[in-house]
Every structure is written in C-alpha cells, then in structure tokens.
Computed example of a mutant assay.
Amino acid sequence: MIRKRSITLHGHRTSFSVEDAFLDELKAMAAERGLSFAALVAQIDEARPLESNLSSALRLHVLRELKRQTTTSDD
C-alpha cells in the first residue's frame, strides 16, 4: 500500500509517497549505514536530479542498491 509520509529536510517539511516495502528497505539501509532515516532521505534528496520527485528518487535508490547487492553477491 502506498502511504504519504512527512519528513523534515534541511529545516523544512516535505512529503513523499512510497509503498511499505520501499520504506522498510530504506530504513534497513539507513540502519546498515549508521544513519538516521531522515539523514539517508536527505542524502538521496540532495543527489536526485532536479526534474525528479523525491518519491521516485527514493524508489530508484532502493532499486539501484538491491541490484548492486545482487551483482556483488553473484561474483
């Protein structure tokens, strides 16, 4: 189920909508890196293209990371 969530990034409130599975992966990634969830989302937000929205950037980040892990584990 897609849920809308709010977060404070760089001192202002913003929202994003992602499925629960993506949210779970993002939280796990943040924990693995020793980051808060908000810090990981801020990193992704800063790196995304200007024409991209935050929700899409979060989903694509999860996809890239999981693909990278799969590729690395196949070696």
Score class of each variant (00 low, 15 high):
61 H>C: 10
31 A>Y: 02
59 R>Y: 04
40 L>H: 02
75 D>G: 15
71 T>Q: 12
45 D>E: 13
1 M>F: 02
13 R>W: 11
20 D>C: 02
37 F>W: 05
56 S>Y: 05
33 R>A: 14
28 A>N: 09
66 L>G: 06
73 S>D: 14
55 S>A: 13
56 S>H: 11
58 L>I: 01
47 A>L: 10
17 S>A: 14
47 A>M: 08
19 E>G: 04
15 S>Y: 12
43 Q>I: 04
36 S>C: 04
33 R>V: 02
38 A>G: 00
7 I>R: 02
74 D>P: 01
7 I>F: 00
23 L>K: 07
22 F>R: 00
74 D>V: 12
60 L>Q: 12
27 K>P: 02
69 Q>D: 07
69 Q>A: 08
70 T>G: 12
58 L>P: 04
68 R>Q: 09
14 T>E: 08
2 I>S: 09
31 A>G: 10
20 D>L: 10
6 S>C: 11
7 I>H: 02
28 A>K: 12
51 E>V: 15
39 A>N: 07
8 T>C: 08
60 L>N: 14
18 V>E: 00
23 L>I: 07
53 N>M: 09
10 H>E: 13
70 T>C: 13
43 Q>F: 00
37 F>S: 04
48 R>Y: 09
8 T>P: 00
33 R>I: 05
21 A>M: 03
40 L>G: 01
75 D>K: 14
73 S>K: 13
70 T>D: 14
